[in-house]
């Protein structure tokens, strides 16, 4: 029933690879990386790379959560607000009540998870479009945070929270200290877990199925409601983790520190090939999206280009990469030549 030339599976595998946005993204990263390493001396140095990893760990963790929601066919704008609320609640418990670490962390995670589930509730039971529901939730939770906190930061975080946790360290030949710290380890763990969970577990595959065709998923007996709670709840948890890590890095809890990062994280996920219509995207792709934004910012910094210039670069990158992806995939499926029709009459 196949018309045209029978394709071997090696050929089709190659074709599939070429169509993957990850492949393009990797090529762009390599090119950009090469340019920076030739022009900015410190760019490829180990301390710089480790520093980069740590700086972007918070965003990467949120991106992993957002990725799951995007795959399920939804979108969430509220996760940065969720992260702030979870962080602040945990900080209050730690500084005002002096609760022990496990309880504080658990409470923070609970706040994040509950806010995520509230999104799922609005989307599944109240049937509000995900973008609208999460915008509304963002307004509500962030504004309430600002109202009740009065915008005041908490500087008195306990030592267990703010002390640097180093898992491994070494000194380079030039005498720089290289340390693998908690945020990096957390990012790696979250990324590996999300990747394994989404590709290898039943829930992960069901999320992909639901994002690909929600009606069909319902018909074959996938519990859509439960999956919504899983996806948005997972993002809530990731936001809480990211929020608490952010306070760990800066040593204080500032209620609006993470506000406005949602669009940057969304850009990274989309750059990495996560589709806004659901069902498509991979963990390595999303990670590459983060990496691209990170090295662009870092490289420009090292080159002494004003940090103000960075936004312009992000804008151009988003426009160029999304347009190119769509245009190249469109060329791929043009003109299905009829089997019987004489080709080139």
């Amino acid at each position: 029933m196949r018309d045209g030339v029978p394709s071997t599976s090696a050929q089709s595998a190659l074709r599939r690879l070429r169509r993957r946005p990850e492949a393009w993204l990797l090529a762009v990263i390599l090119i950009v990386g090469t340019i920076f390493s030739l022009t900015a001396r410190d760019f490829l140095s180990l301390p710089n790379i480790i520093d980069l990893l740590e700086t972007y760990s918070v965003q990467a963790i949120m991106a992993m959560g957002l990725f799951v929601v995007l795959v399920s066919g939804g979108i969430d704008i509220s996760f940065a607000a969720t992260a702030s609320v979870a962080q602040y609640c945990a900080a209050l418990l730690a500084s005002q009540l002096g609760l022990p670490a496990p309880l504080v962390i658990l409470a923070g995670l609970a706040v994040g998870g509950i806010l995520g589930c509230l999104n799922a509730l609005l989307i599944h039971y109240v049937r509000i479009t995900s973008i609208i529901a999460t915008i509304a939730m963002m307004s509500v939770s962030f504004s309430l945070l600002m109202y009740f906190s009065g915008g005041k930061s908490i500087y008195t975080l306990p030592d267990w929270w703010t002390d640097r946790i180093v898992f491994w360290q070494t000194e380079t030949e030039s005498g720089d200290l290289v340390r693998i710290t908690l945020p990096i380890v957390a990012m790696v763990v979250v990324t590996l877990f999300t990747w394994a969970w989404m590709t290898r577990s039943s829930a992960g595959r069901q999320l992909y199925a639901m994002g690909g065709n929600a009606e069909a998923a319902r018909r074959i007996g996938i519990n859509i409601g439960r999956l919504q709670f899983v996806a948005y709840g997972y993002l809530g948890l990731m936001a809480a983790i990211a929020g608490m890590l952010q306070a760990h890095r800066v040593g204080e809890s500032v209620p609006n520190a993470m506000y406005n990062t949602e669009l940057a994280v969304l850009s990274a996920a989309v750059l990495g090939g996560a589709s806004l219509t659901g069902g498509i995207g991979t963990v390595p792709g999303v990670l590459l999206g983060i990496v691209l934004l990170a090295i662009l910012q870092n490289g420009l910094n090292l080159l002494g280009v004003s940090s103000y210039f960075f936004q312009i670069v992000i804008g151009i990158t988003i426009l160029a990469s999304t347009s190119l992806t769509v245009i190249s995939s469109r060329r791929g499926r043009r003109h299905r030549i009829l089997a019987e029709a004489p080709a080139n009459g």
Binding site: V270, T277, F309, Q311, I312, I314, G315, I318, T322, V326
Partner: peptide, 19 residues
């Protein structure tokens, strides 16, 4: 391009704000 307006305008927003 036929790209979703969320993406395009996210890009133009970034670009315009950046400038």
């Amino acid at each position: 391009t036929g790209v979703h307006p969320i993406l395009i305008t996210l890009g133009t927003k970034s670009l315009i704000d950046g400038i």
